[in-house]
Amino acid sequence: MKRWIVVPLLLVAFLGGCGVRPSGVITGGPAPTGKVDGARIYLISDGEPALVLRQSKPATPDEVLRLLAAGPSDAERSLGLTTEVPSGLAPKVALEDGATVVAVGTDVRSLPVLAVVQIVCTVQATTSSAPVSLVSGGQRRGPLTCPRYPPS
């Protein structure tokens, strides 16, 4: 008989102790998404490419790449944004057979990986999602694609 009393008592005690209690993290729908104006370039933050918007008129890919090669502003630098792209890049974007080819003035072999990522992402954000190849002289790197976010 005693067992039968325990069941409802436990139930009542269990439910009676509940109000609004702290919970764990609950994941909902996708984060709000919107368009951005201005030129999109990618600088480096904590070893990862980070989106930076520069206020400007609609710009050509060459102009955007030049903005990238110019490096972060003082304000950006103070927030920890850096770049790996050498300032003497002298880029020139051209389209070849549905792929984007960026001719640069420096040796593509010696470019750091992050710099390549920065260039590829910036070009893709400005032109199209077509793969990007880097060429300098007879040397070629790519075709490459900007790593997706969130990684899927």
Binding site: G19, V20, R21, P22, S23, G24, V25, I26, T27, G28, G29, P30, A31, P32, T33, G34, K35, V36, L51, Q124, A125, T126, T127, S128, S129, Y149, P150
Partner: peptide
């Protein structure tokens, strides 16, 4: 993680819902 997240917490003796998210932008692709 790119999604809206929330969590019930106790703050100042009362129950609160903390909601957080990151602003995302669309890429041309």
């Amino acid at each position: 993680g790119g999604r809206v997240v929330w969590q019930r917490v106790t703050m100042g003796g009362g129950p609160w819902l903390a909601i957080g998210t990151q602003l995302m932008t669309e890429r041309p692709d």
